[in-house]
């Protein structure tokens, strides 16, 4: 599939993950989020930015339990929970948030 972004065609795989991670920008993230029926707010951005930083450092998108643990450490217990992340990203925080963040699907995520 592909995203129509300001008249340009942005290539994505059949599940909507960007083919070229380097084309990502915040406006494109909003568009990908719309496709996922998500309206981006500050809490969404916190997770998306966190994932991008994690990817930048380790070259992988973290598994959900690793994300939960890392969020807990950085933002405290309220935000470091499955419940909180699933409220923000109902179809799976790892999958949906990674897609919006322009990252590949997390390793081990089916």
């Amino acid at each position: 599939m592909a995203y129509d972004f300001n008249g340009a065609t942005i290539e994505a795989d059949e599940e909507g993950y960007l083919v070229d991670l380097s084309v990502w920008n915040p406006d494109l993230a909003v568009l990908i989020a719309e496709d996922e029926k998500i309206v981006m707010n500050d809490e969404h951005w916190e997770v998306v930015n966190f994932l991008r930083e994690y990817y930048d450092e380790y070259q992988i998108a973290p598994a959900i339990r690793v994300l939960v643990k890392a969020m807990k450490k950085k933002f405290g217990g309220d935000k470091g929970s499955n419940k909180y992340l699933y409220e923000l990203f109902p179809y799976g925080p790892a999958k949906q948030a990674c897609k919006i963040a322009g990252l590949p699907k997390p390793t081990g995520c089916v």
């Binding site: 380790y58 070259q59 973290p62």
Partner: peptide, 13 residues
């Protein structure tokens, strides 16, 4: 792809 930084994430796992 340089995947060596990923070894540093092993502790998280």
């Amino acid at each position: 792809k340089n995947f060596s930084p990923t070894y540093k994430a092993l502790g998280d796992y």
